[in-house]
């Protein structure tokens, strides 16, 4: 992650010459994620949990969850602008909408993708290890975050980031490495 946001000025607005993104793009993507997570939850509830790692890895709910995990990882590492849902948004949704009233910095939604990735990787691992309800609980948590983001514009990543800054895990001592 680059540190091009670092500046002596405290201003956090999108700077001139910096490319902003349409804020409706990430919320559209969060909507798709929320629907897919609901399908994961329903499939997991309906499928008996496998007794072997291989059986658990081939459950339909888990396979879909693994895809969601990879997509979160993609968004977190490649950046929200290169997320496949962003491409769908630009091709199919954006042309039908009016112009955005403002552009948004891509850093916050990219950080949120990282938060989603951490939650889903946890669920992925717990399920493969055979921890009961591991997949259901993490999928439900990820659903709540994605749903609130998509429908209400709630930013869970912002809260988590602030807690990390307050506890000193992130912040001035590690300003370039969040």
């Amino acid at each position: 992650m680059s540190s091009h946001q670092q500046s002596s000025k405290p201003s956090l607005a999108v700077k001139p010459g910096q490319t902003g993104i349409d804020p409706r793009g990430p919320r559209f993507g969060a909507g798709i994620t929320a629907v897919l997570l609901l399908i994961v939850i329903a499939l997991t509830l309906l499928t008996p949990t496998g007794t072997t790692t291989l059986a658990r890895a081939s459950e339909p709910g888990f396979v879909l969850f693994a895809v969601i995990t990879v997509l979160f990882g993609w968004g977190a590492i490649a950046g929200i602008q290169r997320h496949p849902y962003g491409a769908i948004f630009r091709a199919l949704v954006r042309p039908r909408l009016s112009l955005p009233t403002e552009l948004e910095d891509p850093i916050p939604p990219t950080f949120s993708q990282g938060v989603g990735f951490v939650i889903t990787v946890a669920g992925f691992t717990l399920h493969l290890l055979g921890v009961p309800y591991g997949l259901l609980i993490t999928a439900s948590a990820a659903f709540v975050a994605a749903f609130l983001n998509s429908v209400f514009g709630y930013c869970l990543g912002c809260q988590i980031y602030l807690v990390l800054v307050r506890t000193g895990i992130l912040g001035h001592s590690a300003a370039t490495g969040y």
Partner: peptide, 17 residues
Amino acid sequence: FSTKVCAPCRATHTVLE
């Protein structure tokens, strides 16, 4: 008070400015 990963902070910056 903002952080750099906070999307609503950008909109708030515009409103307060």
